[in-house]
Design a protein around this nucleic acid. Structure first.
Length: 440
RNA sequence: GUGGGCGUAGCUCAGUUGGCAGAGCACCGGGUUGUGGCCCCGGCGGUCGCGGGUUCAAGUCCCGUCGUUCACCCCA
């Protein structure tokens, strides 16, 4: 048997309905904040990611699905969406004009990593990007939007972590100071000794307790922010306070992509294991220019949809149960039932029936298992009488009442209010019943 | 890329010192010549991940390999 390749999984029903639910909520909130959807190719020129994410990052250096196409051009399955969105915006001149330009997109990303809890080689992101405005109000609006989506979906506690990474000038000063600090430190773990040269910022959020101890007196980026960056960050925090958004200042928060500037944030959740970041984002004012475009302020975030789904309660999702199950006995009745099912569906009522000529008992059992609200029974007797039996199916909701019922009637079938309804009136009768119940 | 755990029925898992491959759930049928939840009876269902080796005999021991899972690393 051929199986799915490593790190790639099938998302199956009923799980898919939970995904649809999440996506519909996200779309609603995006609408509310004035964001418009943009749909993008999954493949881009390798150069796009190398230049935007950073040659030295792990993502580019060892985690991309990169291969030559038939012509020999180097292509890459997108490892993230930001670079693609910006490319599309610049290519189509969407940044032109006054005001903030707001976009969202969602879909699969690809990274060649070792799979583990909450980490897949194909994973899904819900992505938000806003361009053209430098004001800290936009930073806050984007964070509010993110928290809005998450709070509508998740009952559990979320931690919003916030930091400022400054502008390139601040970063240069800070890197120099950090490098100086690290160069004389003894006792850093093996990884950090490597990071010291490859990616010094990463040393800051090493998980080793030992390293954290050593880093206790390390320089903090906040002390290296230029007056503009400091003012921007102060304003962001002030507004978060004003809107009662709980956050934690995390001076050591750095992000894995080189393009971030100023505001950086992350949302962590409990219950996800080691991969506890549900969403992350920040400002990336320099990226458009780095890609050969204009000077374009930008900010955005990505939600890890797979991880988000992991946190959702099991009963989240749409009700996919059919309203009506039509049980038929004998060939003429099946013929009638098939017509009835189509008529119900034309009235937008979910209806099902059996095509295999199974016993009435088996069909009733199917109706129950599918969760139908009503079973319609059609047999020779009903055809002759010109009226079908309509049986409400949800009388025995709880196992307790089922047991009580069983004892009460002692061997006899529990009394169910089963009605005879003439075929001509059946569709209207059923639509009426179901609609009135749904409005309760 | 590194380290540990685990691969047996559709699912969750048992399987003793190597000796006839099991249970629960699910599914199908019957208990009711035409009525769902519970209960009772019966049935279907297996390349024991794959390849090699040791042995009279391997799900069990050995080697390899693939997958999976958790952690490191990294990130959503």
């Amino acid at each position: 048997m051929i199986k799915a390749i490593r790190g790639m999984r099938d998302i199956l029903p009923p799980e898919t309905s939970r995904w649809q639910w999440v996506e519909s909520v996200a779309r609603e909130v995006f609408d509310l904040y004035g964001y418009q959807e943009i749909r993008l190719p999954l493949l881009e020129r390798t150069e796009l990611f190398a230049r935007s994410i950073g040659e030295e990052t792990d993502i580019v250096a060892k985690e991309m699905y990169t291969f030559p196409d038939r012509k020999g051009d180097s292509l890459t399955l997108r490892p993230e969406a930001t670079a693609s969105v910006l490319r599309a915006v610049l290519e189509n001149r969407l940044e032109k004009g006054a005001g903030v330009k707001k976009f969202y997109t969602l879909g699969p990303m690809f990274r060649y990593e070792r799979p583990q809890k909450g980490r897949f080689r194909q994973f899904w992101q819900i992505n938000c990007e806003a361009y053209g405005v430098e004001a800290p109000e936009l930073d806050v609006e984007v964070i509010l939007l993110l928290m809005h989506i998450l709070k509508r979906l998740l009952p559990g506690e979320l931690r919003l972590l916030v930091n400022s990474l400054g502008c390139p000038a601040c970063q240069m000063k800070f890197r120099a100071a950090l490098g100086l600090f690290l160069i004389n430190r003894e006792g850093l773990c093996e990884d950090c000794q490597r990071r010291r040269t490859t990616n010094p910022l990463r040393v800051l959020d090493c998980k080793s307790a030992n390293c954290q101890g050593i880093l206790h007196n390390a320089p903090v980026i906040r002390d290296y922010l230029c007056p503009d960056c400091a003012a921007h960050f102060a304003r962001v925090l002030e507004l978060l306070n004003r809107f009662n958004v709980a956050y934690e200042l995390k001076p050591r928060l750095v992000r894995g992509l080189d393009y971030y500037t100023r505001t950086a944030f992350e949302v962590a959740a409990v219950g996800l294991g080691a991969q506890d970041a549900v969403a992350g984002g920040g400002r990336y004012n320099g990226l458009a220019k780095a890609l050969g475009g204009p000077d374009l302020p930008a900010i955005g975030f990505a939600i890890g949809e797979d991880r988000l789904l992991e946190l959702l309660p099991q009963d989240f999702g749409q009700d996919l149960r059919p309203r009506i199950f039509v049980a038929a006995l004998g060939e003429p009745a099946r013929e009638r039932a098939f017509t009835l099912v189509q008529e119900l569906r034309r009235k937008d009522l979910a209806a099902e029936m059996d095509f295999e000529g199974r016993s009435l008992k088996a069909q009733m059992s199917m109706a129950d298992r599918l969760g139908a609200a009503y079973a319609v029974i059609v047999g020779d007797k009903e055809l002759e009488a010109g009226a079908a039996q309509v049986r409400p199916m949800r009388n025995f909701a709880s196992p307790a009442s089922a047991a009580a019922n069983q004892e009460a009637v002692e061997g006899e079938r529990p009394p169910v209010a089963q009605e005879k309804v003439r075929f001509e009136a059946l569709v209207d009768y059923l639509t009426g019943k179901v609609r009135s119940e749904e409005n309760l």
